[in-house]
Design a protein around this nucleic acid. Structure first.
Lengths: 244, 244
DNA sequence: CAGTGGTCTAGACCACGAG
DNA sequence: TCGTGGTCTAGACCACTGA
């Protein structure tokens, strides 16, 4: 494994891959010092700027931490997976080692109600898709998800597009070539109402995590607003924060 | 407002300040294109590398977004405050425009129990501080917070250090010169047990947000493990995610 | 003191998007 | 075709850390 200058991958991202691989394979252990920036330059034949770009990126992602005057070190294992990534339910479950699937409960176009219209920045009478799905992880109910997508962005959605293991985001990215950039989310706690409890297979009044998300495209237009009710006994949200 | 080469602040951070100020003051509005990198170089007499470092940083923080071949644009207002910051309860409440205060319910040293010892990476018999506080925002109960801090790091904590408006983090950073780097957190939902409900002033069985956090120092040592029970009717956790 | 990461410069070539 | 951001180089000086 070395730097390949004919590869289309940028050199800094190749160096990132080399370093993360050394960490994941255990060559570099937590709190080990990694090679000096000068050593990395000479060893891989790169400029200092490129080396620093690779290392800085891994520092941002939580793989490494720097101490001025001393060196750069490997972080504690669980402190990786630095910044929160924008993922679909399917991607989220797969990264937790579970198999996602879906059952479509509703799929229709409707006029955007007040809060949905505000989040999607559409007019009150514009049509939006409403998709209600019961979502499973390893075949067990995990959450109820209600999504709204402007019909102005996506003309057609069929149940088969979003059922089973199919992901709405995959459809939007592959079929409609919409590039997602970021989302804004809130987490809250609530009870299960009777209908929700029955769908999720829990007792009425059980605790739920409520996740509200608005997703935006690369050009800034809102793409989706979604409310998800998770079984709190099966789902925890995990994240990282940094000082400065 | 311009670049001051005699200032101790790095040039890229001065440029960041200039750009964020133009945005906050409304000179640059959401979806406006900001000046080209070349224009910023010439206007401020900086190299392209420095300009790019400033702009990239604002892109990471969610102030700006880039579209290759087209330019760099201002994000939608709420999409700023990009990455999650490691904040104390006091800092969190102040940033939400509320006044924090605390009432100390317990303050003692104790042997670290199983899960606490594991999180703090101490031996089972090592002593840790246990601090239980009822925390208020604008005088209303907001959460119950139970903190554990190794006595190896902090020899003395008096009730006055952590009561009222005083923050544990401020104490650690100013008195003990401990530099915090990052934390690992989970969010969950649960019910209020009778004692908790009474302290928080809610009905028994009300929904709570449960936040578990372990905080680490710049050199990687665990500094604090804290469990916080928030009134779900008064607290929502808000965050951002990015694709790629 | 020598070595580390932190900052900065002046140049270069490229791929993408729009007219 | 031209201007945008994306990548990369070789060199420089600085502040902080530890011996």
């Amino acid at each position: 494994m070395g730097i390949d200058r004919r590869s289309p991958l940028p050199l800094y991202s190749q160096l990132e891959a080399i370093l993360t691989q050394s960490i994941d394979e255990g060559e570099l252990k937590p709190h080990d010092r990694i090679p000096t920036e000068t050593e990395l330059m000479q060893h891989h034949g790169l400029s200092r700027t490129t080396v620093r770009k690779a290392v800085s990126s891994l520092v941002r992602e939580g793989y490494l931490y720097r101490q001025i005057g001393k060196g750069t070190f490997v972080s504690r294992p669980k402190q990786r997976h630095g910044l929160e990534k924008l993922t679909s339910f399917s991607e989220d479950m797969r990264s937790r080692g579970m198999v996602p699937s879906s059952q479509v409960l509703e799929l229709e176009t409707t006029k955007a109600a007040g809060s949905v219209a505000r989040r999607l920045e559409t007019d009150k009478d514009d049509l939006v898709w409403k998709i209600v799905r019961l979502r499973f992880a390893n075949g067990e109910p995990m959450c109820i998800q209600t999504s709204y997508v402007p019909t102005a962005l996506v003309s057609t959605i069929r149940a088969a597009d979003v059922a089973g293991e199919r992901s709405l985001y995959e459809l939007l990215e592959t079929e409609y070539h919409l590039r997602l950039r970021e989302s804004e989310e809130t987490l809250d706690a609530d009870f299960a109402w009777p209908e929700e409890a029955q769908l999720l297979g829990v007792q009425e009044g059980s605790p739920l995590m409520v996740r509200d998300r608005t997703t935006y495209l690369a050009d800034g237009r809102p793409m989706e607003h979604v409310k998800t009710l998770y079984r709190a006994d099966r789902y925890q949200y995990t994240f990282h924060t940094y000082r400065d």
